[in-house]
Design a protein around this nucleic acid. Structure first.
Lengths: 269, 269
DNA sequence: GCCAAGAGTTGCGGTCAGTGCAAAACCAGG
DNA sequence: CCTGGTTTTGCACTGACCGCAACTCTTGGC
């Protein structure tokens, strides 16, 4: 057998795989959880192993079992732990600002961070429109997310190119063009304080985003507002200015000292 | 050594202990994380073990290491997983209702569920008052939380007594009195639809709470509003009626069919 | 800038916990 | 009561984890 690297921490790996399966797609249809055999088959492991692992995980509260259907789903402990995360703090502080944005434009508003070459959405505030796809806890490639440009704004060129190459198929002309476009966009974020993204790929709508800085001045997150029906360019830039301003206030709330135009303090709605 | 039950899933246990330590008290002071040695000492384990475990956990995104201070804290993966939890769904639906409550009374509003003999706070919405203790992800004993009565409202008497005995010191007269008081309060919840809790123990403020039902009609959660300065009793009951009404609307939003007085649909603010 | 103390990592053998197979128990429907 | 499926349990084997100790890296004092 070729694939026999004596994996350290095999147990953890198995448990994480299980949790990942239980996470499903977050759709409502897998709300009632999954059975042991199904998980075992999905992971190509022994049922007995899964059964035992799940029991242990249940004991720790990482998963919980529906007493009637006997199916497993993610447990309360995850929720409790997640609440103590750095990201949770960020969400708590940012929520009012995002709501203000969502209310002002009646568009969905998002808070995102960078995770590897993906953009992880930490919080999404729906507009008043009927249906709202839940993006929380979901990662999408940097290039697809509206917030991607804001998050990479202050990276140096080499690292950005390197990162993009891990995502884009290398060698294509379109890819090279994308790279250059991207670097230009990043410059725009640095100068104007916000990014405007056209509709890029099938699933991602266009959007306006702006970087959020922590107490050290580093860009650690980005807020963005989706734009469903493409408005006039000027309108987009108006929105950009507002988003950038909110991002600045949020940064200040996170401890970022320099507020260039130190005007009156606006408390979040 | 007496305590040597050949523990199955020792690895998971160790990992969970580590995560629990990293969770800390959720205070701001442990925001920058903890070092390997400190954790090792706290858990009474070998440094090497902790070091290796943390590396594995970091690989899985369960913890992350500050690149500059080299300290560990809880990772983004927890956040992503928690977002797919049953509890997260509940929070998403309930948030607007809680905000409405918090706004109406200008008091902190909470969403809680039952976990063993503890009440786990899933979401807390602060009032406009200056400081707000973050309760999310924190468990407190049933008897202390304002929401406790609402959560137990429809249990049968025996189970309630059994549960209370796991919390209260058995045999004391005060405990027996508490038990009877509790059962009376539960009856009140069933008839009036809300519970009023006096200030009970040092840390918990008084509050008004009401049960929330899922699509099967079972009480799966409770919402509550804190009451800092004890108002007149009538005022408390006015508040109770409002909280109960909001809880009913929330239950309906969760799929609970019967809306006794099926009036006009109020969308959450 | 150097040195020392502390913090974190790595190598290594013995041991025990997890793996996998197969059989038993369980559960839901007919 | 039997039959299909699903989940749990028994048990022997093996390789992954534990703990010790040596090593390296980081930090802070002088």
């Amino acid at each position: 057998m070729s694939d026999k690297p004596p994996a350290p921490s095999a147990g953890l790996r198995r448990d994480m795989d299980i949790l990942e399966v239980l996470a499903g797609h977050g759709d409502d249809r897998d709300a009632d959880g999954f059975g042991v055999s199904w998980i075992a088959e999905r992971l190509g492991r022994e049922k007995s192993q899964i059964s035992r692992a799940l029991r242990a995980l249940e004991l720790e509260g990482m998963v919980e079992r529906d007493p009637v259907t006997r199916r497993y789903r993610l447990g309360w402990r995850l929720f409790a732990l997640a609440a103590r995360t750095q990201q949770a703090r960020l969400v708590r502080v940012a929520a009012p600002y995002l709501r203000r944005l969502a209310g002002a434009f009646d568009e969905d508003a998002y808070l995102c961070v960078l995770r590897g070459n993906q953009v992880l959405t930490l919080l999404s505030v729906p507009s008043s429109r009927a249906y709202h796809r839940v993006w929380e806890g979901i990662s999408v490639p940097v290039i697809m997310a509206a917030a991607g440009r804001s998050l990479l704004a202050e990276w140096d060129e080499e690292r950005v190119r390197a990162l993009l190459r891990t995502v884009l198929p290398s060698g294509l002309d379109s890819a090279v063009a994308s790279e250059d476009d991207w670097l230009a966009d990043l410059a725009h974020v640095r100068s104007a304080g916000y990014a405007v993204s056209d509709v890029e790929l099938e699933d991602s709508a266009a959007g306006v985003s702006a970087p959020v800085r922590d107490h050290r001045g580093l860009i650690t997150a980005a807020i963005s507002v989706s734009v469903i029906r493409a408005p006039a360019p000027e309108r987009l830039h108006e929105m950009g200015a507002v988003v950038a301003e909110v991002a600045r206030e949020l940064s200040a709330a996170l401890g970022y000292p320099a507020t260039p135009a130190a005007g009156t303090w606006k408390s979040p709605a």
